[in-house]
Amino acid sequence: MREFETDVVVVGGGASGLAAAVTAAENGAKVMVLEKANTTGGCANMAMGPLGVETRMQRERLIDISVDRAFNKFMEYSHWRSDARLIRRYLEQSAGTIEWLENMGVEFALPSKYFPASEATWHIVKPKTGKPGLRAAATMIKIMTERAEELGVKILLETPVKSIIKDQGEVIGVTASDKDGELEVYAGAVIIGTGGFGDNPDFIKKYVGLEWGKDLFSYRIPGLTGDGIQMAWDAGASKDFMTMEMVFFAPNTGGYAPIELPFRQPNLLVNLDGERFINEEVIENPVFTANAIEKQKRKLHIL
């Protein structure tokens, strides 16, 4: 059994894990990142960019969105089930996060809307070559990884964490494995940044009540199996409700057509009983529409 000691060990080398690692290292900590994939980034490599509210780019373009309004919209949409303090903190720090990334060398395109009636909070990354688009955030991940390594962060790839080590009730490290066998990393702080459970049908069925491949057809980004969540529970973390944000797509015809096609009126949405179940004026919001569809018989509708 190999043993390592560090100030901070980060479980997961995606966007959140790298952000935690870089921030800790910038503040003088010795940091290790353990990532189970063969590259950093996780699902962020498939993304286009992060959220930002009250950013410099928004102010320069007179985009009228405030932390207060964004907070109220989010909490009202989620019926205040989410942790209001965390949501507020996330939004308050989002502009500073965008600036932090810019200072690191990340460039962003114009703040964008996800759908016409939404807010222009989506800060899409400018790739090094080509136009902003799908997987553009991989450029951001590359820059963050390089910054972490520049600060001395030790990144171990293909090294999945197995469990959290505790001593007299205190978290003191993690166990992991790689191609050379088992290892233990002892640290003053353990940060879990492993993401959700979209690639775990058992989790989805147990905690969301949907059956993948039958009434849910999601991306299933490889690696999002909820292992970090389970490790935290095994170590004594308390449980809260879990859910998924669902998005409504038309049949896949390539590009952005799955998003655009349903927005072209006139549309009439009825369920399998032939009953209209939604005000089609809100169809351009793919999440509102998905929520309505999910409540129908066999989670299906007819467009």
Rank of each mutant, 00 (worst) to 15 (best):
206 K>G: 03
184 E>I: 09
204 I>Y: 07
178 D>Y: 00
205 K>W: 07
198 G>W: 00
205 K>A: 11
213 G>D: 14
203 F>A: 14
186 Y>H: 13
205 K>M: 10
179 K>C: 02
203 F>L: 03
194 T>W: 07
197 F>D: 07
206 K>D: 04
206 K>I: 13
194 T>M: 13
209 G>F: 00
186 Y>F: 14
189 A>T: 14
201 P>K: 09
213 G>Y: 04
202 D>A: 15
196 G>P: 00
200 N>Q: 05
201 P>W: 07
179 K>E: 08
212 W>P: 06
191 I>G: 06
209 G>S: 02
209 G>V: 00
211 E>Y: 00
202 D>I: 15
209 G>A: 01
209 G>L: 01
177 S>D: 13
215 D>T: 11
199 D>Q: 10
181 G>W: 13
186 Y>Q: 10
203 F>H: 12
185 V>G: 07
203 F>C: 15
177 S>W: 07
178 D>I: 00
200 N>C: 13
198 G>V: 07
186 Y>T: 04
192 I>F: 14
177 S>K: 10
213 G>V: 04
206 K>H: 10
196 G>R: 05
187 A>M: 02
177 S>F: 08
186 Y>W: 08
191 I>W: 03
207 Y>N: 11
208 V>R: 00
182 E>C: 09
207 Y>S: 03
206 K>E: 15
214 K>Y: 14
177 S>C: 11
179 K>P: 01
215 D>I: 05
174 V>L: 08
214 K>G: 13
196 G>H: 02
195 G>Q: 01
210 L>C: 05
179 K>F: 07
193 G>M: 01
203 F>D: 13
197 F>E: 11
204 I>A: 13
192 I>R: 03
207 Y>M: 05
196 G>V: 04
186 Y>D: 02
195 G>H: 02
175 T>H: 09
178 D>Q: 01
177 S>Q: 15
208 V>F: 05
196 G>S: 12
189 A>Y: 14
178 D>G: 11
177 S>T: 08
183 L>C: 06
184 E>W: 10
180 D>Y: 10
175 T>A: 11
185 V>Q: 03
212 W>F: 10
186 Y>M: 11
204 I>C: 04
213 G>E: 12
200 N>I: 07
180 D>R: 07
179 K>A: 05
198 G>H: 03
175 T>G: 14
203 F>V: 12
213 G>W: 14
176 A>K: 06
188 G>P: 02
180 D>L: 13
190 V>R: 00
188 G>I: 06
184 E>R: 15
214 K>V: 14
211 E>D: 05
185 V>P: 01
206 K>M: 10
184 E>K: 15
178 D>K: 01
214 K>T: 13
177 S>R: 13
193 G>S: 13
209 G>K: 00
181 G>F: 11
185 V>K: 06
174 V>S: 04
212 W>D: 09
189 A>R: 14
188 G>T: 04
204 I>W: 05
179 K>W: 01
213 G>H: 10
183 L>R: 11
203 F>E: 14
200 N>R: 04
195 G>T: 02
205 K>I: 03
189 A>L: 09
197 F>G: 08
177 S>A: 06
192 I>T: 09
186 Y>A: 04
199 D>P: 08
176 A>G: 03
193 G>V: 01
193 G>Q: 09
213 G>Q: 06
209 G>M: 00
214 K>R: 15
210 L>A: 15
177 S>P: 06
189 A>N: 10
214 K>M: 13
